[in-house]
Design a protein around this nucleic acid. Structure first.
Length: 696
DNA sequence: ATAGGATGTCATGCG
DNA sequence: CGCGCATGACATCCT
């Protein structure tokens, strides 16, 4: 919208939300199947959509629709496109958000390539796929594709995934320009890639396994002195199990989907010790030039190095053809660099501990700190990469775009949403109004938890030859060995131990808090469950009461009928009542005689033996009602309708039945009144009564 | 300005 | 005895 001013100046107002709004409306329409003019059939599943939207996003659809002018067209996609891959893409088309998991990223990528989906930065796939699937491999064999692509660095021929991906990406680009023509090629690529990625896919399964394995831990027990938590944690440290939240909430900060951490965690043991210093070394390189003034390309390159270092890229990379690991291992951080490196927001070395935050509120299994750090570092790295790609693709990653908050980046926004600290030059998501690039220096000192001023100030003073995170992440033995290998002063030793203690404690505190939260959540769930159960039981009780009343009334009618037909005299009735439980409706018939109200308005509860009356103790019977009697009532009601054959067996099988029968014949004052409990009530059936009467 | 959440740190107890 | 962990308490920062 533009408005002409009185003077010839032209002002432009550009809505920042308009496009979002339009897209949102389109998505809404799609969901409601409003104004949709195409049905896309994928694997026998139909998706309604707008041709214009699809065509805008996909060369494939664009080409297809150009041949179908009429609305209401149904397009069946070839087998190469699967629901698993297409659905996220469709969602992306309408929401700009691509939800992916480690499991479906390949499928999405293949579908995107096939369909020529635009604006899905290939570098995302380039980055994500190897990140997801190659991490368990020897890190040094995994090239950082973004670097390598540009530099065409040599790759091990066996690193099929990487090379394949790279090649595929090229094809993807191709397909973007002429999707319909490269379908065959794409198919081949797809198949080849899938084949080659079989192994990685397994790692994905592992991840899911781990995910599942951790869903069954009870936080409630943790609450009780955290016993279970303790057990699970010790377990989780080994199995790298994740939280149930992950589960649910412990989703990848990038996508809201379950993360790949399990895999990452698994090899964290193997990589973490290397991982951190490598980053440092790389960062040392990266930080050798002024961060703020570095053009984006350089930033990316530096980042690329970082990323690569994370992967342990052994190939030559980018502008700095240095084997980073060697650098990190061999070059002790100079005192002049160290503080900056450590305190710099972009320091990968500070990443691991910081990232442990990501596991915090998202819930989940207490992980080993290394596992957490490692897993999180992957997530962070992925997020960072995606963020870069996002900004770059949006043309926002420029020095001048100081008003772009990292929050505007979907990846980092999500990352921040889970409480993650964002490492690197870009300050943490907490920082307000922070420019995504320009803040690198300004915020550099306030970044990492591990990089608090005190730590690094002291570290600077001590000039320690190793990083803080190394201090914290090493095992006890390794730590001791490292200390021995270094000739440290007393002050340095104290400081190192202090750092280690605080770091450990920090992580422990996180675990502790997370457990508490999980316990609270679990207890809430349990309360809700119990509440539901209570409601259910209350309803059941009411129903049973109602049924009991009806049963009692039915019995009363039957007894009355029988007695009237038999024309029993009051004495006979009393005799009969003598051997009947007070709960028997027979008493109702005696009420006129005894001038008591045996009333069914409050149906007499079948009583316990302790309150059974051998005489006509109606009032007693009333007073003996108890909650446990409802079962008996149900028994009665159930058997009343079962007929004589059941009744006879039931009566003869119960002691009360026997007592009733025998006493009726002997007319002895049976002391078996105690037997007139539930069973007695159960045995009080019309048939025995009539039999008794007839016997009489 | 203030409340509340998140996080780090310290002290303490336990294994 | 040293160490790691769990946890309560407190401080600080941030929203």
């Amino acid at each position: 919208m533009s408005v002409d001013s009185p003077r010839s100046s032209v002002f432009t107002f550009q809505s920042a939300v308009h496009s979002d709004h339009v897209l949102r409306c389109l998505d809404e329409q799609r969901r409601r199947d409003t104004l949709c003019d195409v049905t896309v059939v994928v694997e026998s599943r139909s998706f309604r959509a707008h041709r214009s939207v699809l065509a805008s996003c996909s060369d494939y659809f664009s080409a297809r629709f150009s041949n179908h002018g009429e609305p209401g067209v149904v397009i069946s996609l070839p087998d190469e496109v699967t629901v698993e891959g297409f659905e996220p893409l469709l969602q992306f088309a309408y929401t700009t958000k691509l939800l992916f998991t480690k499991e479906n990223i390949l499928e999405i990528r293949n579908c995107a390539a096939f369909l020529g989906f635009k604006n899905l930065d290939n570098s995302c796939f380039e980055f994500l796929i190897p990140k997801f699937f190659d991490n368990t491999k020897n890190a040094t064999t995994v090239p950082r594709r973004q670097c390598c692509r540009m530099k065409k660095c040599p790759r091990p021929a066996k690193d099929s995934l990487a090379s394949q991906n790279t090649d595929s990406d090229v094809d993807t680009d191709k397909s973007t320009s002429k999707a319909t023509k490269v379908q065959e090629d794409e198919e081949q690529q797809t198949r080849a890639t899938s084949k080659l990625l079989e192994q990685p896919q397994q790692s994905g399964d592992d991840a899911s396994l781990d995910t599942n394995s951790q869903t069954d831990y009870s936080l409630l027990c943790k609450y009780r002195k955290f016993q279970m938590a303790y057990r699970m944690e010790s377990c989780g440290s080994e199995t790298a199990s994740m939280s149930p939240a992950t589960t649910a909430e412990d989703r990848c900060p990038l996508s809201g989907k379950p993360c790949t951490r399990a895999e990452d965690i698994k090899d964290s043991e193997a990589t973490s010790s290397k991982y951190v210093p490598v980053k440092e070394g790389c960062d040392t390189l990266a930080s050798s030039s002024p961060r703020t003034k570095r053009p984006h390309s350089e930033v990316s390159e530096a980042r690329c190095c970082d990323d690569m270092s994370g992967l342990g890229c052994g190939g030559s990379v980018g502008p700095t053809k240095v084997k980073l690991e060697d650098l990190a291992e061999e070059v002790p951080v100079a005192s002049s660099e160290r503080p900056r490196v450590a305190g710099t927001a972009g320091d990968w070395g500070t990443l691991a501990p910081t990232e442990a935050h990501t596991s915090g509120p998202s819930g989940g299994e207490p992980e080993s700190e290394q596992a957490t750090a490692e897993r999180s570092s992957i997530e962070q790295e992925v997020a960072e990469h995606l963020a870069k790609g996002f900004w770059a693709s949006q043309g926002l990653l420029k020095q001048l775009d100081l008003d772009i908050n990292r929050r505007d980046c979907p990846f980092l926004r999500d990352l921040g949403a889970v409480g993650a600290h964002v490492p690197n030059g870009e300050e943490s998501s907490r920082a307000q109004g922070s420019p995504c690039v320009s803040s690198q220096n300004e915020e550099s000192d306030s970044l990492d938890t591990e990089g608090d001023s005190e730590s690094y100030g002291s570290e600077r003073a001590c000039e320690l030859p190793f990083s803080v995170e190394k201090i914290a992440s090493l095992s006890r033995n390794d730590f001791q060995q490292m200390l021995k290998s270094q000739c440290l002063s007393r002050e340095q030793l104290d400081y190192v131990h202090d750092v280690r203690r605080r770091s450990k404690n920090r992580i422990a505190a996180r675990r502790c808090r997370k457990r508490k939260l999980d316990c609270i959540h679990n207890l809430e769930g349990e309360i809700e469950k119990l509440r539901t159960e209570k409601d259910k039981l209350t309803t059941e009780r009411d129903r049973l009461n109602q049924q009991r009343l009806l049963t009692w009334q039915s019995f009363s009618g039957l007894y009355e009928k029988v007695c009237s037909e038999a024309a029993l005299r009051p004495e006979q009735l009393q005799v009969l009542a003598k051997y009947s439980p007070s709960s028997c409706p027979l008493f109702a018939l005696l009420s006129p005689l005894k001038s008591t109200s045996a009333q069914p308005q409050a149906p007499t509860e079948p009583q316990d033996s302790t309150c059974t009356s051998t005489s006509v103790g109606l009032s007693q019977a009333d007073s003996c009602s108890g909650p446990s009697t409802s079962f008996a009532v149900e028994t009665v009601s159930g058997k009343v309708q079962t007929g004589p054959q059941v009744l006879s067996s039931s009566a003869s099988s119960t002691t009360s039945g026997k007592g009733f029968t025998s006493s009726s014949h002997s007319s002895s004052s049976s002391s078996s009144s105690e037997a007139f409990g539930i069973g007695a009530f159960t045995s009080m059936r019309p048939e025995p009564v009539s039999k008794l009467i007839s016997d009489k």
